[in-house]
Computed example of a mutant assay.
Amino acid sequence: MKKILSLLFAFVGLLSFSQQISLETIFNDKISIRAVQIWDHKVWYAGTDSKFGFVDLKDFKNQKQIQLSEGKLEFRTLAQNKNYFYAINVLSPAYFFEIDKKDLKSNIVFKDTVKTAFYDALHFVNDDLAYSFSDSDTNDNLKLAVLKNGKWGLFKNEVILNKGEAAFAASNTNIASTKKYLWIATGGKASRVIRMDFKTGKIEIFNTPFTQGEASQGMYSIDFYDDRFGVAVGGDYTKQADNINNIAITKNGGKTWQIQASGANAGYMTCVKIRPGSNGKEMIAVGDQHISYSADFGKTWKKISDEKNLYVCEWVDRDSVIFAGKDKIALAKLKF
């Protein structure tokens, strides 16, 4: 009897928690969106069929969409500095689009024509410095494009990745940074963390206990609160219910990682974001089959929504989150 009551209370508690999120669809279109940005009280997106646009968070009916190219390019990256948005299409040739925030006019400012070019994420460290991570060329050299002093170019380095080690263009979030470090999460045959020290330029690679070894496995998304504490999520997109070794945290800047909630989470996740103002304690994550939340530095997780086909999330403020994915953008209001 005690066991039955315990299970009942646990169910009621989880049900109560799940009712503390309201999800409102604010945009519909035939599009797949894996990268969003918040600016000027609007959510900006880039997606399939060369589509780029915004939805006004003050007036959802105020929307604008343009096509960055006559070709049907697929964008899975989007980032910004104070004057421009930047988007890079997957596959080759990879075109680097610069979009002026004033008039939304775009230009191609860099191009990578190597057959293996596949840019998985684009991240601004500050207004003058950005990095984009691509799958390696045939020599397995770490491939980064860098925007510095107003110009794009390839980042010269001698780092060699493992065969089959790459990344996932799932949510534009396998790169993170603080003032001290840049981190890149890899996956596939090996799932490791690449860390660059901005001051010294030193690049280190750290192993992780994440599920790995197959092309579909590994870390898909990372986020850091400060120079030391970070979280990573992922799994296996071909086995989305699998929930073993798919969440980990670090307390020493990515040197070592500790698996969390293995076997006790909702499965495969494509994006994780730490809640603003929570000092790293609270975080939200999304996968194709669920939205989940942690309030104890990633130690335990609760599924708070069964919403399907969402791939990326971004905090608008402490109590609001944007989610985007297949054919839609949704705004969630959190009540906890």
Rank of each mutant, 00 (worst) to 15 (best):
Q37R: 12
G218D: 09
K61L: 10
E204Q: 11
F27C: 07
D140S: 13
N141I: 13
A167F: 11
Q289F: 10
I31V: 15
N28L: 13
A185F: 12
V114D: 14
N139G: 04
I247V: 15
A167S: 15
L144E: 04
Y268S: 02
A170F: 12
F224E: 05
H41M: 04
L73M: 12
V43D: 05
I249V: 15
Q289I: 03
N28A: 01
Y181F: 15
G218N: 07
F124A: 01
D103N: 15
K302E: 08
L147S: 05
A248N: 07
Q67P: 02
N174I: 00
I291C: 02
Q37N: 13
D288P: 09
V272L: 02
F323S: 04
K105M: 09
W183A: 03
F96K: 01
A166E: 01
A241I: 12
M283K: 03
E307N: 08
V114P: 01
L147W: 09
G213V: 06
W39E: 06
G201L: 10
N245F: 11
A166F: 04
I184F: 13
S191T: 12
R228I: 02
S171T: 11
K180S: 09
V321K: 08
A248E: 06
I274E: 01
F155T: 00
T178Q: 12
R192N: 15
Q65F: 03
G213E: 04
T48P: 00
E214L: 15
A266C: 10
R192W: 07
I184W: 07
N126C: 02
S305D: 03
G13Y: 07
A264K: 15
T113I: 13
A232Y: 00
D100Y: 06
K308E: 12
G53Q: 05
A330K: 14
Q289N: 14
K179W: 00
V286Y: 02
K148I: 04
I205Q: 08
Q19E: 13
G254R: 06
I194P: 04
K326I: 06
N174S: 03
S292L: 03
S134N: 11
H123F: 14
I21Q: 00
D140F: 14
T138S: 15
I4F: 08
M1R: 04
V109Q: 06
G153A: 12
K163S: 14
Q67E: 14
S191A: 15
S216E: 14
L104P: 01
K151Q: 14
K239Q: 13
F224D: 06
F198H: 11
K105Y: 02
N141C: 07
G150K: 10
I284T: 10
F210R: 08
R76A: 04
V55A: 08
K333L: 12
T77Y: 09
L331P: 08
I184Y: 05
A94C: 09
F206I: 06
A266M: 02
I160M: 10
K335V: 00
G150Y: 05
D296Y: 07
M196L: 15
C271T: 07
D140W: 08
F60Y: 15
W44E: 00
T211R: 14
D49C: 02
V55E: 05
I244Y: 13
V12G: 01
D327R: 07
T200V: 02
A266E: 03
I26E: 09
V55I: 15
S221D: 08
T300I: 00
F297E: 04
G230Y: 00
E70D: 14
